[in-house]
């Protein structure tokens, strides 16, 4: 067992620690939402606002994009650049679809009244908006990585960055399970 572990292991482990710290940050927002979700101050409640059909489509978009991201990472490991680009495009398309649905949902909510109408709405926009921001950053990161693959090819440093991206993308899906359950499914009860 002598010698330092390979760079790939060290990089992925470090990124795993970052993801866990990101999830700890999300846990504070989840706690805020859980505590404030009943404080609607006479304004609209989740039961009146949320459209579960949209949430189901959003969930499926994110889930399938996590799947295509995994298959893309697998193709990259096997140096199948064409397959990787197809899966990256699918991942991007599904992520962008998720974001488009979420933005139109936010626009609809804001048109019904200010987002600071109640503590419940502030907590809702902070938690769900933070997740959406992460997805948007992930999409920009994915474009950057595809450009790197196109220019530099699938060399080890690029593969390590792809591994970090796929960890990030899977982690966002895990956070979404929490959002879907706590905010939407329990919110309409």
């Amino acid at each position: 067992m002598g010698g330092p572990p390979p760079t790939r292991i060290v990089v992925a482990y470090g990124f795993w620690i970052f993801i866990l710290s990101d999830i700890v940050m999300f846990s504070a927002l989840f706690a805020t939402y859980a505590v404030l979700s009943g404080n609607t101050a006479g304004g609209p409640t989740g039961h009146e606002l949320f459209n579960l059909r949209n949430v189901f489509i959003e969930t499926m978009c994110l889930l399938v994009s996590s799947y295509t991201c995994g298959l893309g990472a697998l193709s990259a490991e096997r140096h199948q650049q064409g397959r990787f680009l197809i899966f990256a495009a699918l991942t991007f398309g599904l992520g962008a679809a998720f974001l488009a649905i979420e933005i139109s949902e936010f626009a609809g909510l804001v048109s019904q009244g200010p987002s600071s109408r109640s503590a419940f709405l502030s907590a809702y926009f902070t938690l769900v908006g933070m997740h959406g921001t992460h997805v948007a950053i992930g999409l920009i990161w994915l474009i950057y990585l595809v450009a790197q693959v196109a220019v530099k090819g699938l060399r080890p440093a690029v593969l390590r960055r792809l591994l970090c991206f796929s960890l990030f993308w899977h982690a966002l899906d895990i956070v979404w399970i929490g959002v879907m359950t706590l905010v939407y499914l329990m919110g309409v009860q």
Partner: peptide, 17 residues
């Protein structure tokens, strides 16, 4: 690397594709 047999990072697949 021999060491990779003992440590594995999350997200890294095992041998059989």
């Amino acid at each position: 690397n021999d060491r990779s047999h003992f440590d594995r990072s999350p997200g890294v697949e095992q041998n059989e594709s």
